[in-house]
Design a protein around this nucleic acid. Structure first.
Lengths: 143, 143
DNA sequence: GCCAGAGTTCAGGTGACGTTCAAGTAGCGC
DNA sequence: GCGCTACTTGAACGTCACCTGAACTCTGGC
């Protein structure tokens, strides 16, 4: 009646309570407190948390997710259209991820015969165009 | 002549010097020291580092890589056949990764229209069979 | 009023490094 | 041998997205 506990949100979304608290510290979600200082979440938070988890699976960092969530309307409860707008951009990311891994796999196929891993001859070892050069920010695919 | 410096190994392999020192701390690579306490690497270390980098791109943790490297012969310099044996097992991993992301993408496609992200109806939100439940250990795809 | 279970904060750990620092070293020309 | 620059050193701290445990407090049912 007065909102969902952190345990209820965790159970309904599959997120760990520690993650929910962490996301709240980062400002991704909000809660109100009871007189005893316990968190209580609105029901709309469930959808927000679901969005965060889905976005993570697609490979977005929490900072990117925070930015995306910031474009949601303050005044009203987000609609299905709002959520759809945010998730539409993910498609390309997934295609890109698949493309990268497929390329890596094909290179591996052409490389396994030789076992080379040598500098100029082996494509597996020259991935400059396969993966970005490394900015910070990990993509957890299988956390 | 008396071995490669850490900077030379970094340049030839593309690994950062900080990573090389870290891997040495973990026992993945070895070095000898000069009288001035600087690291000097054998030329074979280049191939070893290349293997580590390739294995990481495939998604192995450093611990898994350490275990794989431990199967290399101590007595002699590893041959192309040795390296090929180690990398053969990666194929399935990459296929599995592609399968996972493709499934996620397909679910996203069927989900974008509705913008739902709701609990029972949206596949994107029920990924229990898509990704493992989360043991520790991050897979960095795009570091 | 009691108790179990769920909640709280805080400190510290994880993996795989990157960054920054003062201080030391290598190798070059001269 | 001297000076110069580029490189290297270990230690300590930061990063990201949390997890774990300690020590405590709240909530809800009986």
């Amino acid at each position: 009646m007065s909102g969902l506990t952190i345990g209820q949100v965790a159970e309904r979304t599959g997120a760990a309570t520690s993650a929910l608290r962490y996301w709240e510290d980062l400002g991704l979600i909000r809660s109100v407190r009871t007189t005893g200082n316990q968190r209580r979440y609105e029901r709309v938070t469930i959808r927000r948390v679901s969005f965060i988890r889905a976005a993570q699976r697609v490979g977005l960092s929490l900072e990117e997710i925070r930015a995306a969530l910031a474009t949601l309307p303050d005044a009203r409860t987000p609609t299905a259209t709002d959520w759809a707008r945010l998730s539409r951009a993910w498609r390309g990311r997934l295609d890109e991820q698949i493309r990268r891994i497929e390329k890596l796999r094909d290179q591996l196929d052409s490389c396994i015969g030789c076992g080379c891993l040598s500098l100029r001859t082996c494509a597996l070892n020259n991935p400059s165009d396969v993966l970005a050069e490394h900015g910070p920010g990990a993509v957890l695919l299988e956390p």
